[in-house]
């Protein structure tokens, strides 16, 4: 999942050939790496690919800060 999420974020959301490697603990929204639209696209990707529904109340830093926290969140919802 980590690899799949990282690839989607790097290739589809950041979409910058000059961007290096995404660290799995890198803050996606707080650092400005992704904007609100990017985060919502990521949520859509997670819902479609991992068969879970992300309620609005779960869109917190604890759950969605980085690839690592997202993986933990998704696994906890399965």
């Amino acid at each position: 999942m980590i690899e799949e999420l990282s690839r989607y974020i790097t290739e589809d959301l950041i979409n910058d050939p000059d961007f290096g490697t995404l660290e799995t603990d890198e803050d996606l929204l707080g650092s400005g790496l992704l904007d609100s639209l990017g985060m919502m696209r990521l949520v859509g990707f997670i819902e479609n690919n991992y068969g879970i529904k992300v309620p609005t109340e779960d869109l917190t830093m604890e759950n969605f800060m980085s690839v690592e926290t997202i993986e933990k969140y998704v696994n906890s919802k399965k």
Partner: peptide
Amino acid sequence: TDPNKGAWG
């Protein structure tokens, strides 16, 4: 509440 956290703050 925390400018260092950007949108998370």
